[in-house]
């Protein structure tokens, strides 16, 4: 796509931090980092998966990039730092970055028809040429698998899968360069998830979209993403191209995630990692990871040694992965 310089990534995120205030401690209270210095980049047209459990910071990253929550660090998109933009410049950038949410119905205004919902971004960002808009809207509805008979319906008259198609049509009508998807299939029926995943895959290649795909479903991420980031406790613990991550995971947490994934096969039950996580996320968060010495995963890690409690592992290359683990590659 039209990136400012060849080879420059579409999005370059450096040292992103998102902090939340600990509850009930007032404005001067201690802060907890939900995202703790995460860096990654995304090429035009590339599809990047973000996986991790609740509290890993994956949704906070998406929200920070869209400026829905405050964050520090830099996130350079088309040569401009998204985190420094204000007013008209921020609004202009948003035309090129769109998001699809997990709850398809919750993301749609119940008082607007499908056609109005899909046309709304055009009215916001493009000059009012209603006839052209109508054609664009109808073409996008058809492209996302919504028949023209659905154009006059309201969100409550749609199934979950149809509502998510509307969410996608709305996000794509401006032909953005980056589409952020926050668990877009998790709330859908099983028989519909694959439909939406295939549609995302098609739209991506058709529009040359870059995709930031956040999910906890490792199988869907494998299907849709070229590269995968694994997050734990707000930090990046492994980054690898798809085949490397699924074929030769380096971090013990990545391995645990893959082994715990249930297969539809009675002969092969999922393998729970040892030991069970015992402490509430809230309690763990109260202590900021930055002030915590050592590796955040060590209490759950079967490979932990004394060093893991003393020294936080830095990201380093092992095999095809970037991994933060003292014991990776042994």
């Amino acid at each position: 796509m039209n990136s400012p310089a060849d080879n420059a990534p579409l999005l370059d995120v450096r040292n992103l931090r998102v902090q939340y205030r600990a509850r009930g401690r007032g404005p001067a209270g201690p802060r907890a980092a939900a995202v703790d210095g995460v860096s990654f980049s995304l090429a035009a047209g590339e599809s990047l998966g973000l996986v991790g459990e609740s509290g890993s910071g994956k949704s906070s990253i998406a929200r920070a990039l869209l400026r829905l929550i405050p964050a520090t660090g830099t996130a350079v998109f088309q040569g401009r730092d998204l985190l420094q933009l204000h007013g008209a410049a921020l609004r202009a950038a948003r035309e090129h970055i769109q998001i699809v949410f997990q709850d398809p119905l919750g993301a749609l205004d119940p008082r607007m028809t499908v056609a109005e919902l899909v046309a709304e971004p055009l009215l916001e960002f493009r000059s009012a040429q209603s006839r052209q808009h109508r054609e664009l809207v109808l073409a996008m509805l058809t492209r996302t698998g919504l028949g023209p008979e659905l154009a006059a319906r309201y969100p409550h008259q749609l199934s979950g899968g149809q509502a998510q198609r509307v969410g996608l049509a709305r996000a794509l009508i401006l032909r953005p360069q980056l589409l952020v998807c926050d668990e877009p299939v998790a709330a859908l029926d099983v028989s519909i998830r694959s439909q939406i995943a295939n549609l995302l895959c098609d739209m991506r290649s058709e529009l040359g979209l870059a995709l930031l795909f956040i999910a906890h479903d490792l199988a869907t991420v494998r299907f849709l993403c070229d590269r995968v980031l694994v997050l734990f406790g707000g930090r990046l613990i492994e980054e690898a191209p798809r085949d490397a991550l699924y074929g030769a995971p380096q971090h013990p947490y990545t391995r645990a995630l893959l082994a715990a994934n249930p297969l539809p096969d009675p002969a092969r039950p999922p393998q729970p990692p040892v030991p069970a996580p015992a402490v509430a996320r809230d309690a763990a968060l109260r202590e900021s990871p930055a002030t915590r010495a050592g590796c955040a995963y060590r209490e759950r890690c079967p490979l932990a040694v004394a060093r893991c409690a003393q020294e936080a592992p830095a990201l380093r290359r092992v095999g095809a992965s970037l991994v933060s683990c003292h014991r990776a590659g042994e």
């Binding site: 609740s54 082994a259 996580p277």
Partner: peptide, 11 residues
């Protein structure tokens, strides 16, 4: 539940 926790609860 998260996938690792899910595996524990199923077990």
């Amino acid at each position: 539940l998260d996938v690792t926790v899910q595996a524990h609860v199923l077990e």
